[in-house]
Computed example of a mutant assay.
Amino acid sequence: MTSTVPAHGSLPSTLGPVRAVKAPAAEDSALQAVLLDMDGTLVDTEGFWWEVEVEVFGRLGHTLDDSWRHVVVGGPMTRSAGFLIEATGADISLPEISVLLNEGFEARIGSTLPLMPGAARLLAELSEHEIPTALVSASHRRIIDRVLASLGPQHFALSIAGDEVSRTKPYPDPYLLAAAGLGADPARCAVVEDTATGVEAAEAAGCHVVAVPSVAPIAPALRRTVVGSLEEVDLAFLRGLMTEMRQTFTER
């Protein structure tokens, strides 16, 4: 797959002109590109983030309520860490806590990561069929680059990090930027997400979403399909969803 943007590299933090990769025409499908979330979708790390948050705030003398886990999952660090600072009254700034959380997460993931069931097979299939694919995460670039080493950077034409966009999830900006970088129409992109925050971002961008809930339930909706795991998702499944959706909207 050829790209005019750096493979799995950073892109501008605005939604201005992006030199796009031309998506290959799929004669039998409306699918142009696949955009994948990272934590909880491809790698089993949502629990890692919560464990690190509990540990870091514990060192600061504060106990986190387990019910807060649903509040902080899937969002940018500025939102999740900001919420926890306010909820606990911890005497620490947002930049300071962000450094501690990123350092704690990096130490926890080590050199390898547990992949979600079906993730390796799906990535291999998308690569084999040269489907333009992007990794779109609210995590910072330093974390994404570590995770890419386990996922295989060759599977992605580009990646978007939460600290590289002015507005990350739940805003549509990261998905709009990824689609532009792949030369794809957002309406013809399939997004795979595990949290309500990510689903909201993808749907606001006009993408069709396959939700694989990790922590909290996600209900089916228009342009949204809910599955139990990535083991239910393959290229034929994604192409079928996009073709069916295109026909539905054409008939209206």
Rank of each mutant, 00 (worst) to 15 (best):
A124D: 10
L35E: 03
S29H: 03
I109T: 12
E27A: 12
G74H: 07
L113M: 08
L64F: 02
L84G: 02
L60N: 13
V34P: 00
P132F: 11
T133L: 08
D66A: 10
E125Y: 05
G40I: 03
S67K: 07
E128G: 00
S80C: 10
L101W: 09
M77L: 14
T41E: 07
P76V: 07
I109S: 13
D39W: 01
L100P: 00
R69A: 03
L31Y: 04
A23G: 09
S127T: 14
S67M: 06
S127E: 10
M116Y: 04
G110I: 07
A25N: 13
W49Q: 06
S80Y: 10
A30G: 08
L31N: 00
V56F: 14
A30C: 06
R79E: 08
L122V: 05
F57G: 13
V99E: 08
W50L: 12
V52F: 06
V52P: 14
V71A: 05
E53G: 00
A107T: 08
S93D: 15
G61F: 04
H70F: 14
S127C: 11
L35P: 00
V52G: 11
A87T: 05
R79K: 13
V43Y: 01
L35H: 01
E86Q: 08
D91S: 15
S29V: 03
G58F: 10
L84P: 02
H129R: 11
L122C: 04
M77V: 11
M116C: 12
R108D: 05
G110K: 14
D39Q: 05
P132V: 09
L122G: 05
I109V: 07
P76Q: 09
G58V: 07
A134E: 07
D44I: 01
S29F: 01
T88K: 02
P24E: 02
I131H: 03
E51V: 03
E86W: 10
L94M: 08
M38A: 10
D44C: 05
H129A: 08
A81W: 10
V73H: 14
G47N: 03
A134S: 14
P114G: 04
E51N: 11
F105K: 02
A124Y: 11
W68Q: 03
I97M: 05
D66R: 08
G75A: 06
G104L: 00
A26Y: 09
A124F: 09
P114V: 05
P132D: 06
W68S: 03
E51M: 05
P24N: 01
L31F: 07
G118A: 06
G47D: 04
L64Q: 04
Q32T: 11
R108Q: 11
A90H: 03
P24C: 02
H62T: 06
D65K: 09
M116R: 15
E86M: 10
D91R: 12
G89W: 13
D37E: 12
E125K: 05
G47W: 00
E53S: 02
L42Y: 07
D65Q: 10
R121C: 13
L35S: 00
D39Y: 00
P24M: 02
L94F: 10
R79G: 02
I109R: 14
V54M: 09
